[in-house]
Every structure is written in structure tokens, then in C-alpha cells.
Design a protein around this nucleic acid. Structure first.
Length: 714
DNA sequence: GTAGTTGTGGTTTTT
DNA sequence: CCACAACTAC
């Protein structure tokens, strides 16, 4: 193997790298050279005579997969090894074995569509409606979350119907069933189906499992702490014959519990694989001890964890700054100023990142950066693919690839407007239902739909023949087909006309066509189905360009796996970090803490943490409370405004703050009357939870809230 | 059938 | 505060 510097590895890294046969657990702290260990290990496996073809490495994000591919390639070890995310692997497996699955009654065909949350939303709304239920009690979000959790546990609709014993579960079971049959009718799978179907296929079909066991003799799973139960079962099945399973991860960096990740998978690995070798990577080569110290202090507050040390190998550096600003704009301005200074002192912009809890928090930063002319890139989830024009174009392509995909078909049948309205659609629909044919097939027989007048009939016929025309190009390159659709569907004309506000719409579609062209070039066997299935699993996060000279702005979740010389983490406030929706259980709070931990440990040299006194929240300008995590890291907060000639319109209470009793009636200048729900006496920093008559419950800091005592408690 | 308007509900993180 | 759905007016 070329260029592999095995001699630069530490003793424990070597142990992991040169482990060949049998299960292996690598507990890798942040900055411990985990990626390097994994890629070196792939190289070492090949050195020891393993064929690359027999290696399967699974990562969590496409970006991580791409990075690993490149690193492996630089060792000359790329060819043949399968490196992808769980989801991509599942798509390939399902597409390949769809035929075999059909024999056992599976409705999935290999050209299935993959539905994202917005498609799912349409399906679930349809399902709830069909069950004649009130969407208030069974909101789409709630239902989808519940179904997702079930799928993660590999509980299908029938199994759930059997276990359901109360009203809610029974109703949910009905919805689940309807939802799933809608997906089936559309020949579509949602993200969770990809995992569940693959897991079930592997477990129930010995022949398929045998083939894959034979192919993937060495399995690597990265970020194992974030695998959910379905992924766990897939990994277990894949490794069932050879036992050559190597998992890497860090329980302290598990941040996807909300998505079903089960930290128990990594904690119980040694139970699942009793003869597992365990390697702990505790040396940290990334951060200064100043930064690590903070991370260590913070994570020690978590109760559910495996004790693990963070051993600094670097020399002491600069202290971590914790600043408080007036509001989110001042906070953004302060970050921008600091970045300017760094830049002027020679720091490169691609070594700088700003992390925040929610995507919405990027706005003030972007405004400040534009003002200060600081180049930046926002690394955001699915922004690009969520654009209307992109979704429309993709809907055309999806229909061509999978004519059963009614959700996509309904999206484009009147986009751009071609006079096919609700009534026409409903009539075609009932015709299709009566005849027992799909909506698409019904379009082709529009002449026979007696309920339609001649006008609508003609319009539908034009649309149907247009789609037929496109279908002739289905085998060719994806880019030229996309271009053809753009022109002939009328989308181009529609977007050029003055009615559309978004100038950038056509540019975005151009970007889509370029991406398709790149796919055509890169892919060994380009096909529309393959292309669509691939990009369904792609997000903007994956296209983050590490090398471009721009400051990176991203959520703490997106920061996982990255590192930067200079890191800013903003919004250290109660309700934001920890997030207000994650405070109902200790487990959730611990996950928020891990999220902060992940953010801190991305920093190599310098770290700035900040929060602001006020923040606009749900459109309201509100006083904030600093995050409890700041106490935990023992932060000495510097009030940046106090350093200047600051007028503080909140007079000092001199530390003498009033005390409250639960049940006490209080008044607030903007929320009105309310009753004390909880009171935590922390002297000057006492916190009170008040339920106001408006119905909202607020956590307030006594020092600032200026609550009026209305009367003595009963 | 369509476009514009009002109302309502949901509002974290991502494959 | 935003997106989408239902409603209303053409």
C-alpha cells in the first residue's frame, strides 16, 4: 500500500488498525484520529490480503463517505471497497433484490421513489383524511414521528395493529396501515422504509443474506453511537457469518436520539459480540488543553455515560472566551468583528466556523457578514432540494422513472398552469379508482372518462402525450432529459415570464442540470432511477466545501465530524441550548449537553462562546436566561457591553432578589398575571417558572423579570 | 378553473 | 413568524 504512514500511529491506534479478524469496538474521543484509524485500517486489511471488494464501510453522512473514499483512494485502496451511508447501501440492496422480494409478496419494485418529509406529509394527510379523523388530534407531524419510531423498531403496520390496545394506538394503527398502502400504491419508500425493508430482507431471506455476507466479509460502521435499532439489525445481519465487524464511535457524541438513535447499541457492543476487542482512543491531537478542559467539565455532568478521558497532547493555548452581548444583532456583530481581526492577523477563513442550535439563527450572522464583507457559506440541510422549482423539475423526472408516483404526478399535472384543475383531477381519480387502475394509466385513457367535458379532456390528453414523449428519452443521459423537460414542459417559459418573483429559479435549475451532467459523467451505468434515488439521499450539508476561503455557518448537528482552528458557538441560552423542546426528560437534556460538547471539541486553537441578554424569539423580543451549561463549564462571562461605556437600563438589584413560593400569584409587564409553578433559589441567579393566564409558561430570571407580587399565597 | 386572501397550525436537529 | 390549506371572488 502506498503512502500509508503506519509508523506515525500511536500504540492504541495501531492496535485498532492491525486488528483483522473478529469484532472490534473502537471508542474514539473527539480529535483522536479516528478517521485516520479507519482509513489506515482499510489499507492494512488490503495489505494483509483482503480484497477491497470484500470490504464495506458505512458512514453516517454522504460527506463522511466521500471523505473516506478520497482518503482511501490516496492510499491506493479505493477500487472495489463499498463505502456509503446506511441509506445508500439500503437503496442499492433493495433495488437489486426487489425482484426476489416480489416473490415473497413485497409491493416494492426496483424503480421506487424515495419520499422525503414533504412527500410524506402529503401521504399522511391523505391517510388521516381517509380514516375520517380529525387532523387536530392526529397531526401529520405527530403521526409521522410515531410511525417513524415504529419503523425504526421494525414494527410494520400489521404487527402494530396487533399490539395496539388503547384508543390512540388503535387509531394510529389504522393511519399507519393507510399511510403504508398509499406509499405502496405510489411505489414509494420513505427514509425509514429503506432501513426497515433492508433489515427485514436480510433477516428473513437467507439467500440474500448469504450473498451479502459473502460479498461484505469485513464490515466497518462509523458513528456507531448514532445508529438506530434498524441500522443495528442491518449491521448485525451483515456481519452474522464472518463476525468481522468493526464499529467506531463515541457515546459522548451521540446527538441523534430524537431520530431514533440508540446509544445502547454502542454501550452494549461487547455483550452482542462477547469476544470483541476493545480499543480506546483517548489522546486528543486536535484541541488545546484550554478547550479540552471545558469539554471535560461539561460532559462530566452527564450521568449516562462510559467514563472516558480526554488526554491533551497539545500545549496550552489561549483561554476560551465567554461573552454576553445585548441582542442577537450585537452578538452577530461581535462575531463578525472578531473574525475580521482574526483575518487581519492571517487566519484563513476556511479555518473559522460559527455554530448555532437552529438554522433560523444564521440570519443575523449572515446580515452582519454581508455588512462587513466577510465571505461565508451557510451549510444547511436540504435548502436546495426544497426549492419549489427544483422539486417541480424532480417531480417530472420521478414520474418518468416511476409512473406510479402519484404524489409527484399531481405536483406537476398543473405546474405550470395548463388548465387542469381540482375538479378534473378528482374526476380522473374516481375513474381510476372505479377501474382499478393507477392515476397515470387513467390519464392515457382520458377519452373514456365520461364525466369530463371536451375541454378538460383535450388538456389532459396534451399533458399525457407530453409525458409519453419524455419517456422516449428515459434511457439517455439524465442532464439532457432534464433540459428537455425544462423546455417542453413549459417550466422555462413560465419561470421566464414576469409572474414569477424569483429571478434565481432558472439559475437553480441550471445548477440542477449541471449536477445531473456531473452524475452522467461520474456514474458507471447512469440511469434516471439511480440518479433520482441518489439525490433523494443528498443534502446541502454534503456539498459543504471545506477548502473554500469562506467562514462556515452551520448547526451544531452539522458540525459533527469537522474541525476548525477557530470556532464560535452562539446562543448559549435557556430554551436555545438546551432547546426548549428538549428539556422534558433528563435524557434529552444530556443529549443537548453532548451537542454542546460536540461543538466545543471541534475547535483546535480558539473558541468563543456567547449569548445575548435579549433575543427575538417567535417574533417577540425577549429577555433571555443564560444556559445552565455555562455554569457547568465554570464560565467567567465577560459582558462586552460593560467594557464599553454602557448604559444598563436594568438597575442593579444589589443581589437582593425577592423569593417566591410555588402557587404565588405574580404580575409581569408584558405577560400579565400568572402563577408560580416552580422556583429555584440560586441567590441572585434565582429562576422562576410562571404559568401566565395567556396560557404560556415562561422560565424567567428573577433578577430581570421584575415580577410583581400580587397577593400572599393561599 | 384560477388567483388572491384569509386563517390556521406548527415552530429543532437530518438520512 | 412562516408555510400551507381552505375560502372567496372573479
Amino acid at each position: 500500500m502506498q503512502d500509508v504512514r503506519y509508523d506515525e500511529l500511536t500504540a492504541s491506534q495501531r492496535k485498532a488498525v492491525f486488528h483483522v479478524e473478529g469484532p472490534l469496538l473502537v471508542l474514539a474521543g473527539p480529535g483522536s484520529g479516528k478517521t485516520r484509524v479507519i482509513t489506515c485500517r482499510i489499507a492494512a486489511l488490503i495489505d494483509s490480503g483482503v480484497r477491497p471488494y470484500n470490504i464495506c464501510a458505512i458512514t453516517f453522512t454522504n460527506r463522511a463517505a466521500e471523505e473516506m473514499r478520497q482518503r482511501a483512494a490516496s492510499y491506493g485502496a479505493a477500487g472495489g471497497a463499498h463505502i456509503s451511508t446506511f441509506h445508500s447501501l439500503c437503496v442499492r440492496v433493495l433495488r437489486k433484490y426487489a425482484g426476489a422480494m416480489a416473490a415473497t409478496g413485497s409491493p416494492i419494485r426496483s424503480n421506487f421513489s424515495i419520499y422525503d418529509d414533504s412527500d410524506q406529509g402529503r401521504c399522511i394527510r391523505g391517510a388521516v383524511k381517509q380514516c375520517e379523523l380529525d387532523t387536530k388530534n392526529f397531526s401529520p407531524g405527530r403521526c409521522l414521528a410515531a410511525i417513524s419510531a415504529l419503523k425504526n423498531r421494525l414494527v410494520d403496520a400489521d404487527a402494530f395493529a396487533e399490539e395496539a390496545d388503547d384508543f390512540f394506538s388503535k387509531t394510529l394503527a389504522k393511519i399507519y396501515r393507510r399511510y403504508q398502502s398509499i406509499l405502496n400504491e405510489n411505489n414509494a419508500l420513505d427514509f425509514d422504509d429503506l432501513l426497515m425493508e433492508t433489515a427485514l430482507l436480510l433477516e428473513n431471506n437467507p439467500q440474500v443474506r448469504g450473498e451479502l455476507n459473502n460479498r461484505f466479509r469485513f464490515l466497518l460502521v462509523d458513528e456507531y453511537q448514532d445508529t438506530n435499532h434498524a441500522q443495528y439489525r442491518i449491521a448485525r445481519a451483515l456481519a452474522s457469518e464472518h463476525n468481522n465487524i468493526c464499529v467506531t464511535g463515541d457515546p459522548d457524541q451521540s446527538i441523534y436520539r430524537w431520530r431514533g438513535a440508540d446509544i445502547g447499541n454502542i454501550l452494549a457492543f461487547e455483550k452482542d459480540w462477547p469476544d470483541a476487542a476493545v480499543v480506546k482512543l483517548e489522546d486528543n491531537f486536535r484541541s488545546t488543553p484550554n478547550i479540552l478542559n471545558l469539554a471535560d467539565k461539561l460532559i462530566a455532568f452527564n450521568k449516562q455515560r462510559k467514563e472516558k478521558r480526554l488526554v491533551a497532547t497539545r500545549q496550552a493555548g489561549e483561554d476560551v472566551s465567554v461573552n454576553v452581548l445585548e441582542d442577537e444583532e450585537e452578538e452577530a456583530a461581535a462575531v463578525a468583528m472578531q473574525i475580521k481581526e482574526l483575518s487581519e492577523h492571517g487566519s484563513s477563513l476556511n479555518g473559522i466556523a460559527v455554530f448555532y442550535r437552529t438554522n433560523a439563527m444564521s440570519r443575523p450572522l449572515e446580515e452582519a457578514f454581508i455588512r462587513e464583507k466577510i465571505p461565508y457559506q451557510v451549510v444547511r440541510g436540504v435548502e436546495f432540494y426544497n426549492r419549489k422549482e427544483i422539486r417541480d423539475m424532480l417531480a417530472y423526472l420521478k414520474v418518468l422513472a416511476n409512473t406510479s408516483d402519484e404524489v409527484s404526478l399531481l405536483r406537476i399535472i398543473n405546474t405550470p398552469a395548463r388548465g387542469i384543475g381540482k375538479t378534473t383531477i378528482e374526476r380522473i381519480r374516481s375513474y381510476a379508482a372505479a377501474q382499478g387502475i393507477s392515476f397515470y394509466v387513467a390519464l392515457g385513457r382520458v377519452g373514456q372518462i365520461d364525466s369530463l367535458g371536451n375541454g378538460p379532456k383535450a388538456k389532459v390528453a396534451v399533458f399525457a402525450s407530453m409525458i409519453k414523449q419524455f419517456e422516449q428519452d428515459i434511457e439517455g443521459p439524465v442532464a439532457s432529459l432534464t433540459e428537455r423537460v425544462l423546455v417542453e414542459s413549459g417550466m422555462q417559459k413560465y419561470l421566464q415570464s414576469g409572474d414569477v418573483k424569483e429571478e434565481s429559479a432558472l439559475e437553480n435549475i441550471d445548477a440542477l442540470i449541471s449536477a445531473a451532467a456531473e452524475y452522467d459523467k461520474r456514474s458507471e451505468e447512469p440511469s434516471l432511477v439511480d440518479y433520482l434515488q441518489e439525490i433523494s439521499l443528498f443534502s446541502d450539508t454534503d456539498s459543504y466545501d471545506v477548502s473554500s476561503e469562506r467562514v462556515a455557518l452551520m448547526t451544531l448537528h452539522a458540525a459533527k465530524g469537522l474541525e476548525f482552528e477557530n470556532v464560535f458557538i452562539i446562543g448559549l441560552e435557556e430554551g436555545i441550548l438546551p432547546h426548549e423542546r428538549s428539556t422534558s426528560s433528563p435524557e434529552e437534556l444530556e443529549e443537548e449537553r453532548r451537542l454542546f460538547f460536540v461543538g466545543i471539541t471541534r475547535a483546535k486553537d480558539r473558541l468563543w462562546i456567547s449569548y445575548s441578554w435579549y433575543r427575538t424569539f417567535h417574533g417577540q423580543f425577549l429577555r433571555t436566561i443564560q444556559s445552565p451549561f455555562l455554569y457547568e463549564i465554570g464560565a467567567e462571562v465577560r459582558d462586552v457591553m460593560d467594557d464599553e461605556d454602557e448604559d444598563d437600563d436594568f438597575e442593579d438589584t444589589g443581589g437582593a432578589v425577592p423569593k417566591f413560593i410555588v402557587g404565588e400569584l405574580v404580575g409581569h409587564k408584558s405577560f400579565g398575571l400568572g402563577r408560580v409553578q416552580e422556583y429555584t433559589d440560586m441567590g441572585e441567579n434565582s429562576v422562576v417558572v410562571v404559568k401566565f393566564n395567556t396560557g404560556q409558561t415562561k422560565t424567567l430570571m428573577v433578577k430581570y423579570a421584575k415580577l410583581l407580587k400580587m397577593q400572599s399565597p393561599q
